[in-house]
Simulated scan of single mutants.
Amino acid sequence: MTWRQKNPTLETAAVYRARVRGCLLGGAVGDALGYPIEFLSLDRIRTVHGERGVTGFVPGAYGAMGLISDDTQMTLFTVEALIEAHARERIRGIGGAWAQMLREAYERWLETQSKPGPEQDAPRGGLISEPWLYARRAPGNACLSGVAQKYHPDPMLKLDGKPGQVNPDSKGCGTVMRSAPFGLINTPGGAFEMAARGAQITHGHPTGYYAAGALAAIVAYVVEGDSLEGAVVRTLRLLARHPGHEETTAALEGALDLAAQGRPTAGNVENLGAGWVAEQALAIGVYCALAEPDVEAALLLSVNHSGDSDSTGSICGNLVGAVHGDVGLPHEWVEQVEGRARIAAIADDLAAERLHQ
């Protein structure tokens, strides 16, 4: 895998850092916007919050505002694994262990879902020591059961479009909502491969792992400087090389077609599905980011629908954040999102690791 960004100029490095921050903070903002309304129909959302639906953070669990869900939790543990794997390769010259490190990071996440807080007598450092991450926010069953199986894929095996060993029939959006970080630290092709294999830790359905790979590749193309539409088109070409890509390809093509039809609407979002499965969540996130040029409006569009609002909001946030950088995100929402300082810090750590010479 090609991890390092070679000899960047100061300007290029600054833009890259902003995109990494934007991707991770944007994902957290979209997640927090959608989490309180995740299981509500669009009619119910409008009844409770007004005809426009939610227009900002609304109270979630225990009346708190700006809470993130398992989507951002797992994304952060993905980042932690990538930082560790890159540092190991850079310092020790030992590569190829990223899949094991990713599995171990997800096992640490699983620990946060079953304990009230960090073990005080055994400080371990890293995200596992962060008390605010010890919160169970409706994690997917496949994520929970998959991580518990302690499987890590062989990075040398070719993606063949066949069901994986773990939860072979599952293609829930738990694969794609955590996979943007792969696109922040690798080439598009490398990001696709890593994200797809990483998804197989919990979900074995080809569409589940290809959708994860597709999001990572789109983010990587954007980081390289492509437009979002161009990134999606190039990702479709990448997908076409892999057997079993058809569902993921059809979903992305549907998002592109709808985005080209004019004024974005909640009806168009719901034409793409509810987002509970991977390809639908990806399509909704892509559609909203493409169809609505205003970042705030795109994020609101991505959560105001009948379905998995936090996952679609998270994916849309990853995309608009990667495109516009952290300075392009709504400042008030960024300030209010749970864990903002820690998310920004780990984003900077990830950027620094890739830029390290």
Rank of each mutant, 00 (worst) to 15 (best):
A135H: 11
T187S: 12
F192A: 07
G174T: 09
I185W: 07
L127N: 02
D160L: 01
S179I: 03
L133R: 03
M177K: 02
G190S: 05
H152I: 06
P188D: 14
K158R: 13
L157S: 13
G146M: 08
D169H: 12
M156L: 15
Q165T: 01
I185M: 13
T187K: 13
R178D: 13
N186E: 13
T175F: 00
G126R: 06
G183M: 10
G190P: 00
K158F: 07
K150M: 14
A180T: 04
G174N: 05
A148I: 05
W132P: 15
V166A: 01
L127H: 01
M194E: 12
S129A: 15
A142M: 11
A148N: 09
L157M: 12
A180C: 05
P163W: 10
Y134E: 02
G189C: 04
G140T: 07
G164R: 06
P188G: 09
G126T: 04
N141S: 08
C143D: 13
N186H: 10
A135V: 12
Y151D: 10
G146H: 15
G172V: 08
C173Q: 03
G172F: 02
G146Q: 14
E130Q: 12
G190I: 14
W132T: 11
A195S: 08
A195N: 06
R137K: 04
C173W: 05
G161E: 04
